[in-house]
Design a binder for these strands. Structure first.
Lengths: 240, 240
DNA sequence: CGCTGATTTGACAAGGTTCAAGCGAAGTGG
DNA sequence: CCACTTCGCTTGAACCTTGTCAAATCAGCG
């Protein structure tokens, strides 16, 4: 009787199929100070990570010393999801970060018995893939204004419904520049310009207020980067 | 006795676990003329395709009418690998194309019994992911020269070992431009420029000879885009 | 041969990079 | 507590690449 009560109360310990997130929830939280790396490009890929708190940058260093930022990672995102033997990029904390580590072999042996775990990972990878393609679209924007507007909308995530909102930009201008493929000067100038138009307002160094969401979306080319919105898209060219 | 002989000879019909490619090989070949689409962005994603022959372009049309080419697809590549309910892009034949179609539900019911099929698809998706990231790096190159050099190396695939080689470019200049995020004029000018340096030579409209592979690699930033090469990369920054 | 569509080439302007300097906030050490 | 340094960010000016517009050239095809 009493045992039933307990299991009834704390559903976390109910005997259910383990989900990906329940697997992670069993792992202890690890903390990382800004500037420190979770792993380096080329490291043997032994773990998968789930970000619990904070923001990180994913990047590669090219031969000529240039740094290309492939993306920013936030709570809920997974890191190191790949069958490759080595990590394909470096991941570094921007803010103080909390994450959980899951050894790959651990996941693999478990997913032998629980195929739906693979399913979930697969689904995550598909999301990541879609996000990567969205980013390629973002990159292909020509002007600095379009790129930055797109970037800000990306950082606003799904909250585009609100006409006004405040977004955190914990990364430096250099991070943004290396992400969008421009220079810090152009990033800075463009932010100044958008502030001048009243589209955005710089609240603090690392926070920006989106003052006129419609204008921002229009500047970004009218396209919502968030692929969840594109689902409802009508096929304009089906008859072309 | 005779039965054993037969199964011994034609290993294709041996009672083995079906692989992804053996699954596809059972499907009839479908042909597609240049300019025709395999599927459209937004279509319900009912099938997975394997390209057998030819080249296709993968693209999205933005609100403002601009076309962004996300990639080119060649024999051996899969199309429509995703758990999304709808295709995220349009795929169109550039050359005459041969492909095989596999209904998604068919694959799914099969992979229930044969988990390693999912494994293979997962692996493919990982490859695609890595390729997408390579492309983001390619995009982030600044000058038109770097981008085009990188693009040519990408089209040369793994054949970078040869000091000289001939590559097909069945796509138009506009395709290349929409892929690299530049204009046809710049693409054309850059090709002319590289020809002038003796790095490449335009054999035909749709074929280019790579005359000096080392110079081309240097122009592309010294980085080999093909991720299979990067595997062997040493970690320069592990001690930073 | 004359059409059409793709490609190349030229001239010019716009926008972004580069180089250089100034600003402002945070942290350090006297 | 106040110089002093540092780092990230902004701003300015000159230069250069690329986009734009326009025209010429080329290739394929009826």
């Amino acid at each position: 009787m009493s045992l039933q009560l307990i299991t009834g109360q704390s559903t976390n310990f109910a005997v259910e199929k383990p989900t990906l997130s329940s697997l992670f929830r069993r792992q202890p939280i690890e903390r990382l100070a800004p500037g420190f790396a979770v792993f380096w490009e080329g490291d043997e890929a032994r773990n998968i990570f789930e970000v619990v708190e904070g923001m990180l940058r994913v990047y590669r260093i090219l031969n000529d010393g240039r740094r290309v930022i492939l993306g920013f990672v936030r709570p809920g995102d997974l890191l190191g999801v790949s069958l490759k033997g080595h990590y394909l990029y470096t991941v570094e904390a921007i803010t103080p970060v909390e994450l959980r580590r899951l050894p790959k072999h651990h996941f693999e042996s478990l997913s032998e018995r629980e195929p739906h775990l693979k399913e979930q990972l697969f689904s995550k990878l598909c999301d990541e893939m879609a996000a990567a393609q969205d980013q390629m679209v973002l990159f292909s924007r020509r002007s600095a204004e379009e790129k930055l507007a797109g970037f800000l909308l990306l950082m606003a995530r799904g909250h585009v419904r609100n006409r006004r909102m405040l977004i955190d930009l914990p990364m430096t201008r250099l991070d943004i520049a290396d992400y969008l493929g421009m220079t810090i000067e152009t990033v800075s100038r463009t932010i100044t310009k958008l502030s001048g138009c009243g589209v955005i307002a710089t609240v603090e160094r690392r926070a920006i207020a989106l003052m006129n969401m419609d204008a921002l979306i229009a500047l970004a080319g009218g396209e919502l980067e968030d692929s969840s919105f594109r689902q409802a898209y009508d096929r304009r060219h089906a008859m072309a």
